[in-house]
Computed example of a mutant assay.
Amino acid sequence: MSTSYQETLRVRFRDTDSQGHMFFANYLVFADEVAGNYMRELGFDWSNPGGLPCYVFTANVSCDYLHECLSGDEVEVSIAYERIGNTSATLGFSMRRLSDNVKLAKGSFAQVFVDRETRKPTPVPDSVRAAFPG
């Protein structure tokens, strides 16, 4: 996966489960947070839904858990578009712990771009197409 955008997040105690490692769903929360910030750079300011070029619905999520992460770990989350279609795209992510460079997880979000009024699929905006490395 080529990296288009990345951020570092720290695992908080509240992100962990009773076994002491990050709760499985929070890997997706971390990836979604960074993906949202990346999408903001591409013209999707979620604080102003009326100004969006279209909506973006997540149609599918996948995540492969490769290694555990603990409270206090600094995690680098990398996001990049892996595929762009006519009205949909796949946004991939990977996560690694900074202290030892261990890869923690990888996965993807399948996105469908939809018209704000009709909620029907609409072409992927040019700002997203421009972010696709392929």
Rank of each mutant, 00 (worst) to 15 (best):
T3I: 15
S4D: 14
Y5P: 09
T8K: 10
L9E: 11
R10C: 09
D15M: 06
T16I: 07
Q19L: 15
H21A: 06
M22V: 15
F24H: 15
Y27G: 05
L28C: 04
F30C: 07
V34I: 13
A35N: 06
A35Y: 08
N37M: 12
N37Y: 08
M39E: 05
E41Q: 15
E41C: 10
L42F: 08
L42T: 11
G43V: 13
G43M: 12
D45H: 08
S47P: 01
N48G: 00
P49D: 01
G51L: 05
L52V: 05
C54A: 13
F57N: 02
F57E: 00
T58P: 00
N60I: 04
V61L: 13
D64R: 12
L66N: 02
E68L: 04
L70F: 14
E74Y: 08
V77C: 08
I79T: 06
I79E: 00
E82C: 05
R83V: 11
G85N: 09
T87H: 00
S88I: 02
S88H: 04
S88Q: 10
A89L: 06
L91R: 13
G92K: 10
F93S: 02
S94N: 05
L98A: 05
L98P: 00
D100Y: 06
N101I: 00
N101A: 09
N101K: 08
K106T: 13
S108L: 02
S108M: 06
F109C: 00
F109S: 05
F109W: 11
A110W: 03
A110S: 12
Q111W: 10
V112I: 14
V112E: 01
F113W: 09
F113P: 08
V114C: 13
D115G: 09
R116K: 15
T118S: 14
T118N: 01
P121I: 01
V124H: 00
P125V: 01
D126V: 14
D126C: 00
V128K: 04
R129A: 03
R129G: 02
R129Y: 00
A130V: 02
A130K: 14
G134N: 06
G134S: 11
